[in-house]
Write a protein that binds this DNA or RNA. Structure first.
Lengths: 142, 142
DNA sequence: GCGCCTTATATAACTTGCTTATGGAAGTGA
DNA sequence: TCACTTCCATAAGCAAGTTATATAAGGCGC
């Protein structure tokens, strides 16, 4: 079964389209949207990349107006990164495009197959949460 | 449902570990293993990247001993790319590591959840094939 | 056979996206 | 005050993608 699920990587790769943005960039925006503003180092841990990589990404995202950098009043060394309205709009557009692509694929399935998928979705959701557990701590210390 | 499946992208990202190799590199090797030796341009189409990107990738993979380049007897302009034993070994090791990671996650699921996943696997497999259809033509013209 | 057009792929230049290494500023505790 | 730690920007290097370009080979019509 584990090997079968491995094929999901392939599907997700195709669904991950379009490619104007790296998966890390998308995930960073999504996490900022979901968990609120964060420091660079926290984001780096969340996304499993190094701090300089995250600094560079934040710089690029800021240049594109998708995030903003703010001084952290609690610590003079730190900056806090926050998603902008444009950033949210980009996420929404991606989700829409992805949902559409999936809907097209799903339309080719039988009713039976769709039911099986629907039953498995909550499980996949749980699997995903488990997989992400080491990276994401509940927002609290902000 | 489409939105729920979208979350699979997240799961696959985590499962896609480790990162020593890009998804395109892995897919290229996997396709060479599965469909046999191919030209650079064919590989580029398969993986949805440009020809120069694939040329570069093949160059890097060749440097690492994972593929070999051969002259194509049928066309003096072309080269044919073939996976090596080392390339196959790398794929096998990745699959093993991935299966293990998944098995750990699955061990935390109930019997019921596992059954739901097992039922959905063939469907996911079909979805993946559909999603890949525009890229992969059956090997025949080689 | 020749000329024109197409196809195949290597190379150049550039950007993104990652890594390790480093440096400066701020924070902490003795 | 000093030593150490933390935070993040910057530098250098490689991978991985793009567009543009150049060269060689192939195909077709005259």
């Amino acid at each position: 079964m584990a090997a079968g699920l491995g094929r999901m990587v392939t599907l997700a790769r195709v669904l991950g389209l379009p490619r104007e943005m790296s998966l890390t960039a998308v995930a960073t925006l999504a996490d900022l949207e979901r968990f609120g503003a964060r420091r660079v180092t926290e984001l780096a841990v969340f996304e499993g990349v190094t701090q300089p990589a995250m600094t560079q990404l934040v710089t690029r995202l800021e240049r594109e107006g998708l995030v903003e950098r703010r001084d952290d009043p609690a610590d003079g060394r730190a900056v806090v990164v926050e998603i902008t309205g444009d950033g949210r709009a980009v996420l929404a557009a991606r989700r829409e495009a992805q949902a559409q692509r999936l809907a097209e694929l799903l339309a080719e399935l039988s009713e039976e197959d769709r039911a099986a998928l629907a039953a498995a979705l909550p499980v996949l959701d749980r699997l995903t949460d488990q997989a992400l557990r080491p990276y994401h701590t509940p927002a609290g210390a902000r």
